[in-house]
């Protein structure tokens, strides 16, 4: 591996870096936790509140089926939203920081 000579602890104190780090951490862990809560609500609800899953909403299609489908929608939404935010904010902040250091 090539050895670049960066002063890591100096970069770690750079205000731009700290801003990027904070933004990334809040966003990534926040969304990770939120989507996990939604994900685990599926086995929890189906296991402990099966009656909810039986409620028919569209013809014979019930809440359970639509809730499972919504898991797919949520996963895709999180992926798309993250891509958008990362491309717009994180990548820009990273580029600015890297330019400043180099």
């Amino acid at each position: 591996m090539a050895k670049e000579s960066y002063n890591w602890s100096e970069i770690a104190r750079n205000p731009k870096y700290l801003e990027l780090k904070r933004k990334k951490r809040v966003f990534l862990f926040g969304w990770w936790i939120a989507s996990s809560v939604y994900y685990f609500s599926l086995p929890l609800l189906s296991g402990y509140f099966p009656a909810l899953f039986k409620i028919k909403l569209i013809g014979v299609i019930n809440f359970g089926y639509l809730f499972i489908l919504s898991q797919f929608v949520v996963a895709i939404f999180v992926a798309m939203y993250y891509t958008k935010v990362a491309n717009r904010d994180f990548d820009r902040l990273t580029d600015e920081l890297v330019r400043e250091i180099q």
């Binding site: 685990f40 086995p43 189906s46 296991g47 099966p50 039986k54 299609i61 359970g64």
Partner: peptide
């Protein structure tokens, strides 16, 4: 019985096991 096919619990019977499995996936 037909509607039952659209309702949970025919295969996955133990919620705790399902959560445990869910953790392994996640």
């Amino acid at each position: 019985y037909g509607q039952r096919f659209m309702e949970p619990g025919l295969f996955l019977k133990n919620p705790l096991d399902q959560i445990s499995l869910g953790i392994a996936w996640a």
